[in-house]
Structure formats: structure tokens, C-alpha cells
Write a protein that binds this DNA or RNA. Structure first.
Length: 811
RNA sequence: GGACUCGUAGCUCAGUUGGCUAGAGCGUUGCAUUGACAUUGCAAAGGUCACAGGUUCAAGUCCUGUCGGGUCCACCA
């Protein structure tokens, strides 16, 4: 034995030994209790970082339970990490002077696939170098066909249960990354921008985004604001940069009379608040910024300018025209930015798939409240229930290529047409051929327009029509008995009731204006192709089940990566086989960082329960973030980043692992420094040398006489107590305390006290002293093994032989 | 604005349901040591446990407030 412990001499061989002897391979064994952890799948093509280093907690739990006689499964996998990976790949393309728009979709997908495959493997190697007891024979990847298949099943099931819907809403869109994000992926940044006060018809109003004024469709004031009360409901004329336009003034409580001038321009297509105001007051949407981040053809001479350029030009032009009142330059506010590229996000209206989360959240919350899913440390339970309470419908569409493509097919319409919606209850009457309809809202139809008729509840097209005549009229002057209308009414109350059904928020009386459309109706038949319907199906359907059209095109979008991640605990086990799923599911512990409690943990519970009707894991253990030695976040700009793999090389995996846990309260952030590892490296060396000392004595084999003395009894007693204490800590997830206990006992009791006391006895060849010390030592190695697997295995083997493993003791 | 969390030795942190002279690692000081280990041993210095009240026989630990960090969420043109 060397004088000091040399990690590099052992680590590789020992890991290979473990793998060769299938020590990490889990089998279904009904005689044993299962203990399962699914590894939070790291990004397939990224190198190991501090987050992954924290998997040490999982290894500690796995090895501890393996030693306790459980059938343990630690299930490894890799995530395709949609946006992250595509973003990295695009940077890679950029270096070659190319962009993703230079390639067709299948080619681009294949290129990213190959790129990932090339870079894959480093992550696995690094996890092995940390000694993780992962069952590599079962490894899965989120893009494996069998995984994707189950993810599709989930989507279908959600759809069948009515929990998936498609809606046009404002989304957070990054015009640089070319995709939308869910609300959780938005990062708000504090920023100082000019606040522009401009003349706006009879008002002056303040805005930071003058370039969106072309999309304004209303002006809002607070209804209690005496200054503007009289304007509410009136139409005002505004002199703009591309001509005069008219807008309605609405009263809404969200307007703060104290801010700016107390007047707000309403731009529903480009602002979340305005969108809400517009919904409340039935104000139309007008999109003037495109998904390329440039102004569109509704903005006259500003068309084609980027948002930034347009803002500068609009400001300059407003000043020229004398419409700019003043500019406040130090206005500080929070801006939504892309968590990926850091650019400002553009709220844009877009058609996307959403998951209705309410029913899922309700079930998830029950599991958490009733402790079917227990959270450690406890304080995160409160946080999780709050997160569940606040969940809003989840946008799962992403406009990127790298991901699991959404299995939805659109029955393509032969041409782009405007749509007129009908309430489900009147569709049958419309089909009977009555050809007139009253509408409260003007759809902007013109005589001669070819329009599609849609069942607004089912979102299905059922016919086409050509507009013959449009008449504007008040409700009071509608001919109730008009036989050519699809429905006749006996009283105005009935008619108003019918209107109300379509416009529940609107006040309707005899003075309300309605539009009367006359049209020729044409029912959609099998011969006509394309009804615009969405079909959710794993495989491409032969034809549309509604209209029999064969022209079906798959949605271009891919799933939010979290959608597949949310299913990870059960897809991994299901794809491994029913017997495995039945035995190992629900998994025992989900261990991850508290930073993804919302994005991942909550969703796993929601989706996992929905699909399996069981909690995906019985316990959640959350670890903290790694910071530098002064508690500062590690960042490249601060230059305080340590590379975990460097640390492993320099001090050994055991020291590194122990340093992550030693003296750290579970769930708290860790201030990491090289000194911490040095301390643990020294500890490892102490352990090594106690072994070395005992081993030397063992080999000296003097005259064997045994004599019980007080010190050996004391040691045995102390050891028994300590073992109990250790188990208590381990079972309560108090790993730091357990490690501290072994550290204290091995070093300061066993080595400093007992070895010193018994040194003379050993010299005299007292075998009782040697065996007591050795026994105590081996027991400690066992307890230390979850934390420092390599050195403990190496020492165990020097005592019992190269073909033995410390892990097999209870096998 | 809301929620959570922290404020204990020079630094980074432990301190279990309140209970003896408040602990660890690193750092500091002194001494020791050539047959397990200098990646060592022994010893020492160093804390009004943020502050102010309160509950209690007893508070670093529970309650209230103040001050000061941190994290997350919400969000006004």
C-alpha cells in the first residue's frame, strides 16, 4: 500500500469492476423491496456542470439502500433539450456562416441529431468518473422511438379527455430564436428606457413603445378618473403618422390614474395587459409586428423596419409633426426577455396548443397535501402548493425543429378564407339551408367574399358560403318572422337571448347594432377536400374523418421539452417492460434542484398522475445551488467558476463528492471552494492510513494471543451507538449529519483515540485488539461507502481480495 | 407588492422536538514527530449566537417588531 491514497490509481478500474460484475444492474426481485431513483436526464450533448455534480445525493441514497438490502435501480437517461441544443447548434452553424433557414426541416433535424450523437458520451463518461451507481444497461434518451411513442400516447389521451386545446393568444415570442415560450421561461430584467409623452387625439399619453401605435385599437382610462370620465364610450379621432384614425375610449380599472397622464393606448396584439383590456371591452386585435420582428404592411412607410428602427423613426417623426410632448429618459421598468439569448421578447398573437391544467393541478395538489408525495426539506412543500395554485394553462408548442414533433394533423383548406362561427345549437338549422344570419359584430366581410362556416364549439368547419348582401341594422328593426333566416323568433326577448349566447359579456338591447348577412350556403361534402380540422394521431391518418380529404399536413411545431420531461419517471420504466414498471413504479425518490420545482417537479406530478393514476415518486428531495466560496453565484464574467471535472482530477472523485455534502444543510446553497475538497482529500487519506496500519499489523501475524481489555469493549459500545445514529440520519435524508458522524468517528475516535490506545497491544500481538479495530473500521467503511465509494471499495478489497465488493456484503 | 429564506468564531457553515462550560472545516498561534498518516498529532486563541422586546424554571432554538442580505413569484402604458 502506498503511503497516501492515490485516487487515479483506483477509480477507473474499480468502476469497470462494478460494471463487469453487474453490481448496478437492477432486476425485478419480489423478495426484496425496490428502491428507485430516476436520474434527472442531463442534456445529451452538454458537459457536466455543478447541477449534475449534485447527483451525488442520489448516489448516496442508492448505495446506502443497496447496502441495506434493497433492490435498487438508478435509471440513467439523456434529454434532447430542445431549445438549448438547437441554440447551441445554431451558434455552431453561424461559425460556418450559415443559418438554420438555409436548410430544409428534415435535413436540419438530421444535422442536429448527428451533432448531438457526436457530442454525446462525454456526459456519460463524466458521470462514471464520479462513481455513480447507474444502471447503464437501461439507459434511455428522450428521442428514442419507444419513448416518443409513449409521449404521443399521453398527448392523445390528454386530447381525448378534452385537456388539450388550440387557441390564438398572445405568446412570448423571441424573434431571434424564432419560437414562443411558456410563461415560466420568461426572464424579467430591470431596464431603463425613455417614456414618451405624445399627443393622441384629445389626450396626451405616455408609452415606452410608440412604434406599436399602428396597432392601437382603443384608448383606455380609469372609469373613476374625473378628468376623462366623459370620454368613455366615445369615439375619438387621432392624428397619426400614417393618417387619421378613429378609436373607442374604454374605461378599465387596471389603468392607474397616477401613472403618466392616466391615459393608455390599447395595443391588444402586442401587449398582454392590453390584450386583457381588449377582451373585456370587445376591442379588435390588430397585428402590426410580424414574427420576424419587423413592422408589417399595415404600417405604411414603416413596413420592414425592425422594432428598434421603427421606434427611432416614429419618435423622430412624431417630433417633426409636433406630436411629441416630452420625453422622460430615466423610466425604469421590467422587460420580458428570452432566457436563452437575452433579447427582449415580443408579445405576438399566435395559434398554439395548450394544456388545460386545472384538472391536473387539482389532483397533483391532493397528492402533495396528503403527503402521497413528500417533500424534503419540508419548507418546499409550501412553495410547491403555491406553485400549483398559480399554474396557468401551459403552452406546449415550440417553433423549433429539434424536438418531438407534435402528432397533430391539419386537414388543409383548399384556400384561405375568413370564418364565420356558429353556436353548436344552430348549426343544424344553418345546414337546412336557411341562408341569413344576424351578427352583432362586423367581421369585415365584403359582398362577394367566400367564407367558411365553423361550429364555434367544436372548432369544425361545416360549410362554405358566399356573401350576397350585408345590412347594418339595429336589433329593434329586425324582422322576427323573416322566413329566410335560419331561425325565427316570437319575441325580441328570444332574439336577444340568442344574441347573448354568442356575446355573453355584451349588453344587448333593441338599440344595439347588428349586421345582417345574406349568403349562399354550401355544405362541406366528401368530394370537397379540406375542412381545416385538427386531428391528433400518432400515425398520419389516411384521410380526414370529418370530410374525407386526404390532404393532411402535420403541425410544424414540436413539444416544449418539459412536456416530455414531465413524463420521464413513467416513460423510462414503461419502455423497459411491464414487469419493471409494476415493480419499480411509483419511484421512491425524485432528487433535483429547487430551481426547477415549478418547471419540472410540479409538472411530473401533474402529468404522471394523469397517465398512471399513481404518484410518479413518493418523495422529492431538493438540493441547493452551488456558489463560490463567498456565496456568490458562479459566473464567467466574475471569473469565479470552478470546473467540477478539474476538481475530480486534482483531488479524486471521493473527496469531491464528500466536499459537496460535508457541512451543508440539505436544500441550502453550497459555498464551494478548493479548501473544502482539500479537507475531504485529507480525510480520505486518513481513512487510507488507518487501513494501511491495520493491514500491516494483520500481515505481521505475531503469536496469537487474545485478551479482552476495556478499550475494545468501549469501542464496540461506541460503534453500536454510532451506527444507530447514522441510520437515523440517513433515513431522514440528513446526509450531511451522517457524513459528519462518520468523519468524526473514524478520525477522532477510532484513529486518534482507539488506535493510539491499542497500539501497544497490537505490538504485543493481541489479536482481540486487532480484530476489534478491524471490525470497527470495516463497519465504518461501509457507512462511508455511499459518500466515498472508490476508496472504501479499494480498502475493502485489500482486506478481502480483489474479487470481492463492499456492495455485496448483504447480497 | 407577495411568499420563502438567512443573519452563530477571521472565512464557509452545523446546531434535531427550547436543557449542562455554543460546534465543524478552512485559516491563525505554539509545541511535537523519522515504523499508519506533515494530506499528521497535541494544545491554544477567537463568538454580547444582527438588534429590541416577549413567553418560560430555562431561548442560538418559540412569538412580535426593527435593521440588513438572498431567492422565487407578480407587475403599470
Amino acid at each position: 500500500m502506498d503511503k497516501t491514497f492515490q485516487p487515479s490509481k483506483f477509480e477507473k478500474d474499480i468502476y469497470a469492476f462494478w460494471e463487469k460484475n453487474k453490481l448496478f444492474v437492477a432486476k425485478v426481485d419480489k423478495k426484496k423491496k425496490p428502491f428507485t431513483i430516476i436520474l434527472p436526464p442531463p442534456n445529451a450533448n452538454a458537459a457536466l456542470h455543478w447541477g449534475h455534480a449534485m447527483y451525488v445525493y442520489e448516489d448516496v441514497m442508492i448505495r446506502y439502500h443497496k447496502l441495506m438490502g434493497f433492490e435498487t435501480l438508478w435509471f440513467p437517461g439523456a434529454d434532447h433539450a430542445g431549445i438549448e441544443t438547437q441554440f447551441v447548434f445554431e451558434k455552431h452553424l453561424k461559425k460556418q456562416g450559415k443559418s438554420r433557414f438555409d436548410f430544409e426541416r428534415p435535413i436540419l433535424f438530421q444535422m442536429i441529431w448527428d451533432f448531438v450523437q457526436e457530442n454525446r458520451g462525454t456526459m456519460e463518461k463524466q458521470l462514471k468518473s464520479l462513481g455513480f451507481a447507474l444502471d447503464w444497461t437501461k439507459e434511455k434518451y428522450t428521442m428514442d422511438p419507444d419513448i416518443v411513442d409513449i409521449v404521443y400516447d399521453t398527448f392523445e389521451k390528454l386530447f381525448k379527455d378534452g385537456l388539450i386545446y388550440r387557441a390564438e393568444r398572445l405568446v412570448n415570442y423571441c424573434t431571434s430564436c424564432g419560437t414562443s415560450f411558456s410563461d415560466l421561461e420568461v426572464v424579467h430584467k430591470e431596464q431603463t428606457d425613455p417614456l414618451y409623452y405624445m399627443k393622441y387625439g384629445p389626450f396626451t399619453l405616455a408609452t415606452v413603445r410608440p412604434e406599436t401605435k399602428f396597432g392601437d385599437t382603443a384608448v383606455a382610462v380609469n372609469p373613476k378618473d374625473k378628468r376623462y370620465k366623459k370620454w368613455i364610450g366615445k369615439i375619438v379621432e387621432v392624428e397619426g403618422l400614417i393618417g387619421k384614425f378613429k378609436l373607442k375610449v374604454v374605461g378599465d380599472d387596471v389603468v392607474d390614474p397616477k401613472f403618466g397622464t392616466g391615459v393608455v393606448k390599447v395595443t391588444p396584439a402586442h401587449d398582454f395587459n392590453d390584450y386583457e383590456i381588449a377582451k373585456r371591452h370587445d376591442v379588435p386585435l390588430k397585428q402590426v409586428i410580424g414574427f420576424d420582428g419587423r413592422l408589417n404592411n399595415l404600417t405604411g412607410k414603416y413596413e420592414g423596419l425592425t422594432v428598434k428602427q421603427a421606434r427611432e423613426k416614429v419618435v423622430a417623426d412624431l417630433e417633426k409633426k409636433g406630436l411629441m410632448v416630452k420625453i422622460k429618459t430615466d423610466y425604469s421598468h421590467r422587460v420580458a426577455t428570452c432566457y436563452r439569448c437575452g433579447r427582449t421578447l415580443e408579445p405576438l398573437p399566435k395559434d398554439q396548443w395548450y394544456i388545460k391544467v386545472k384538472p391536473l393541478v387539482d389532483e397533483a395538489k391532493k397528492l402533495v397535501v396528503k403527503n402521497k408525495v413528500e417533500i424534503y426539506p419540508k419548507r418546499f412543500k409550501k412553495q410547491l402548493t403555491r406553485i400549483l395554485d398559480e399554474f396557468i394553462d401551459w403552452n406546449i408548442s415550440r417553433q423549433i425543429v429539434w424536438g418531438i414533433r407534435i402528432p397533430a394533423w391539419r386537414c388543409v383548406r383548399p384556400e384561405k378564407v375568413k370564418i364565420m362561427g356558429f353556436h353548436d345549437s344552430v348549426v343544424s338549422q344553418v345546414i337546412k339551408g336557411k341562408t341569413k344570419t344576424y351578427r352583432l359584430r362586423d367581421h369585415g366581410f365584403k359582398v362577394g367574399d367566400r367564407i367558411a362556416l365553423e361550429n364555434s364549439q367544436k372548432k369544425e368547419l361545416f360549410g362554405y358560403a358566399v356573401i350576397m348582401k350585408i345590412q347594418k341594422t339595429s336589433v329593434g328593426s329586425i324582422d322576427l318572422q323573416d322566413k329566410s333566416h335560419y331561425a325565427v323568433y316570437s319575441t325580441y326577448e328570444d332574439l336577444i337571448k340568442a344574441f347573448k349566447r354568442h356575446n355573453p359579456e355584451k349588453e344587448i338591447n333593441k338599440q344595439t347594432k347588428a349586421f345582417l348577412y345574406e349568403y349562399t350556403f354550401e355544405e362541406i361534402t366528401k368530394s370537397r377536400s379540406g375542412c381545416g380540422r385538427w386531428i391528433v394521431s400518432k400515425k398520419k391518418p389516411q384521410k380526414c374523418p370529418k370530410c374525407s380529404s386526404g390532404k393532411l399536413i402535420q403541425d410544424e411545431d414540436t413539444f416544449d421539452t418539459w412536456f416530455s420531461s414531465a413524463q420521464w419517471p413513467f416513460v423510462t420504466l414503461q419502455s423497459t417492460g411491464k414487469d419493471h414498471f409494476d415493480y419499480f413504479y411509483p419511484t421512491t425518490v425524485m432528487e433535483t434542484g429547487y430551481d426547477i420545482l415549478r418547471a419540472w417537479v410540479s409538472r411530473m406530478i401533474m402529468v404522471g398522475y394523469f397517465v398512471t393514476k399513481k404518484e410518479p415518486f413518493q418523495n422529492v428531495f431538493l438540493h441547493g445551488m452551488v456558489r463560490d466560496k463567498h456565496g456568490q453565484k458562479m459566473s464567467k464574467s466574475k471569473g469565479n467558476v470552478l470546473d467540477p471535472m478539474d476538481m475530480v482530477q486534482k483531488f479524486g472523485a471521493d473527496a469531491f463528492r464528500a466536499a459537496l455534502l460535508f457541512g451543508v444543510k440539505e436544500g441550502n446553497d453550497i459555498s464551494f471552494s478548493e479548501e473544502r475538497i482539500v479537507g475531504m482529500r485529507n480525510f480520505a487519506n486518513k481513512v487510507w492510513n488507518v487501513g494501511r496500519f491495520l493491514h500491516m499489523n494483520k500481515n505481521e501475524e505475531k503469536k496469537s494471543k487474545s485478551k479482552k481489555i476495556k478499550a475494545t469493549d468501549d469501542l464496540n459500545k461506541e460503534l453500536e451507538q454510532m451506527k444507530k445514529q447514522y441510520q437515523k440520519h440517513m433515513d431522514k435524508y440528513e446526509f450531511s449529519k451522517a457524513l459528519n458522524l462518520v468523519h468524526e468517528f473514524l478520525w477522532h475516535r477510532l484513529a486518534d483515540v482507539y488506535v493510539e490506545k491499542l497500539k501497544d497491544e497490537l505490538k504485543n500481538g493481541n489479536m482481540e485488539a486487532l480484530s476489534t479495530l478491524t471490525n470497527s473500521y470495516i463497519e465504518n467503511l461501509k457507512m462511508l461507502h455511499p459518500f466515498m465509494p472508490f476508496i472504501t471499495e479499494a480498502l475493502y478489497q485489500t482486506f478481502y481480495g480483489q474479487n470481492k465488493s463492499i456492495l455485496n456484503r448483504h447480497a
